[in-house]
């Protein structure tokens, strides 16, 4: 049968790019029958806490993310970025900027003591539990994983860009090299190995913290209980799992 031939081509392809044990492991996971023994999807449910009052706009997360995930370094694509808000008293709209996504930090552009409220807001994929983006994918090339990460299947994506339109937060882009969609996958290759995400690892102030909502020992539970928490654009009911502490009402 031709399916055999197809399998052969797939296997041969994998052997070309992967070492034998990696290919065998990949094969096992691909059929959906096996998981890496150390990591059980059913035991985790990932999210993130962002503490707005701790963000200093250093851009470490943006740089780390680009390094870790090989995100196109040239502007203008980001898996994570930082925005600077500047809200003058009584102003209807905030002034917002994000030069190069915060990759090179934020050169001062406001006069000190101008009476306005100013702060940084890190953004990333909200890993929505009811993702508008995965809902619209025509072929199932992006999806919510059982452990709560919104992932992309790069080998299956058509590049139709419907999901980019459907994301209310602007978290998706088309990678010009692969012509498929790309977005924050919560460093899925790290968190499934017991590491934290690259952005959290390199955040100097702990403004962002990876959390496992299914782990009863995760400090997230205390944090969520002890703070006034908000998600972005709650009116859209996306089930966002990036929880912001100290989020100002002016943030979009």
């Amino acid at each position: 049968m031709s399916s055999d031939r197809r399998d052969f081509v797939l296997t041969a392809g994998k052997l070309l790019v992967l070492t034998a044990p990696a290919a065998a492991y990949l094969e096992a996971v691909e059929t959906g029958k096996a998981e890496e023994p150390a990591y059980k999807m059913a035991e985790h449910y990932w999210g993130m806490i962002v503490d707005v009052d701790k963000c200093i706009g250093c851009g470490n997360c943006v740089r780390a993310c680009k390094t870790e995930n090989d995100v196109p370094v040239e502007p203008y694509f980001f898996r994570t970025w930082v925005e600077r808000y500047h809200v003058a008293e009584g102003a209807e709209h905030p002034d917002v900027d994000s030069p190069d996504g915060g990759y090179s930090g934020f050169p001062e552009k406001y006069a000190a003591g101008d009476g306005a409220k100013s702060f940084f807001v890190p953004k990333l994929c909200n890993q929505c539990a009811h993702s508008p983006c995965t809902q619209v994918c025509p072929v199932g090339a992006t999806f919510e994983s059982p452990d709560g990460a919104v992932l992309v299947d790069k080998s299956y994506c058509l590049g139709c860009r419907y999901c980019v339109q459907a994301c209310p937060y602007g978290c998706r882009f088309i990678d010009p090299r692969t012509k498929t969609v790309d977005k924050c996958n919560l460093c899925y290759h790290r968190i499934t190995k017991g590491l934290t995400t690259a952005c959290c690892e390199s955040c100097p102030t702990g403004a962002r913290q990876l959390v496992d909502l299914k782990d009863p020992k995760d400090p997230v539970h205390d944090f969520l209980r002890d703070h006034k928490i908000q998600v972005l654009k709650p009116q859209l009911a996306t089930g966002a799992k990036v929880y912001y502490n100290g989020l100002d009402g002016s943030v979009r």
Binding site: C137, P138, V139, G140, A141, Y156, C157, L158, G159, C160, R161, I174, T178, K179, T180
Partner: peptide, 16 residues
């Protein structure tokens, strides 16, 4: 317009 026109058959194979 598709980034991968050769994959468009997937719309019929695994329609979401």
């Amino acid at each position: 317009h598709l980034g991968h026109p050769e994959r468009s058959l997937e719309m019929y194979l695994t329609p979401h």
